[in-house]
């Protein structure tokens, strides 16, 4: 049943208003990204033709290209590692019986309450002691395991029909072959859903990347971009906004590509 016409119009009006408010700042940033310095220094909404100049300046002269490369490396490595590690751990909890399994699972779940930021001072000590301070691995290694992902993979495996598992047993598949040729093909939706969350997480990180940004080789783009606003003698608003627009592209691409799988992946896991 469709709502009455009046209700439909009212709903659209409400949605359009909200959408305008939400994309407003992005549109404003996009317009500023096209402006040269004189236009950007006045609060005008005029489109100027300097977009490519600004992108080029941001990418090369202000090194955002390099920083973006770092962020992408971190995001891809962390997402891949998290997926593999959590998938293996989740499978171990479902398909094996071993002593202290309940305790081990509780200890994994407990880390849900320990966001890295809470441990930032001590994390700094640990990373420095390992000689990793100021390097890219310092941005990758601490985030390779995840309680959330382990938990959700476990939940997903619990719903894998028993016949499939038994068929694999009859075939005599070892644990690793079982994971590779049975579990992984059944888990793409969950993998994709978690990948979306992981990438958003990496993109939003700030405190630890800020502390770890010693040189350009370990600076993530979110830190580099803020420095353009805070540290430069002359603020190039057009360049900053062009940089901001660039950082949106990878997330939007990933989200659009994985949107459907995300919906299906979380459908499974949230049912409990």
């Amino acid at each position: 049943m469709r709502p009455k016409p009046l209700t439909r119009v009212a709903t659209h009006v409400a949605l359009i208003t909200f959408t305008a408010v939400f994309i407003g700042p992005v549109v404003y940033a996009a317009i500023t990204a096209t402006q040269d310095q004189s236009a950007a220094l006045s609060p005008s909404l005029a489109l100027v033709t300097d977009l490519l100049v600004n992108v080029e300046l941001a990418w090369s002269r202000f090194r955002l290209g390099e920083f973006m490369g770092n962020t992408v490396i971190v995001a891809v490595t962390v997402t891949l590692a998290k997926t593999v590690l959590s998938l293996l751990a989740g499978a171990a909890f479902v398909y094996f019986r071993f002593p202290l399994r309940g305790v081990a699972f509780t200890l994994v779940l407990f880390t849900l309450m320990m966001p890295t930021e809470v441990l930032i001072i001590a994390l700094f000590d640990v990373v420095e002691w390992m000689g990793l301070y100021g390097t890219l691995p310092a941005l990758i290694l601490p985030f390779m395991a995840s309680a959330t992902s382990t938990f959700l993979f476990r939940q997903h495996f619990l719903r894998v029909p028993r016949d499939i598992v038994e068929a694999a047993q009859v075939d005599g598949a070892g644990p690793l072959r079982f994971v590779r040729s049975v579990l992984v093909p059944l888990s793409w939706n969950t993998i994709a859903a978690l990948a979306v969350v992981d990438i958003i997480y990496i993109w939003n990180m700030y405190l630890w990347p800020l502390i770890n940004a010693v040189g350009p080789e370990s600076t993530m783009v979110q830190v580099g971009l803020v420095r353009l606003l805070v540290d430069q003698q002359v603020t190039h608003y057009g360049v900053i906004m062009a940089g901001a627009m660039l950082t949106m592209i990878p997330v939007l691409v990933v989200f659009l590509a994985l949107q459907e799988r995300f919906t299906r992946g979380f459908a499974l896991s949230t049912e409990r």
Binding site: L88, T111, L141, A145, P175
Partner: peptide, 27 residues
């Protein structure tokens, strides 16, 4: 229990355990 070789479970859990201990429990 689908698989009985417990050592395999250990190897599958180890990477997660090491990361959680070194970067969360120790800090």
């Amino acid at each position: 229990a689908t698989f009985r070789r417990r050592s395999a479970a250990l190897w599958m859990l180890l990477p997660t355990a090491v990361v959680l201990v070194v970067f969360l429990y120790v800090p």
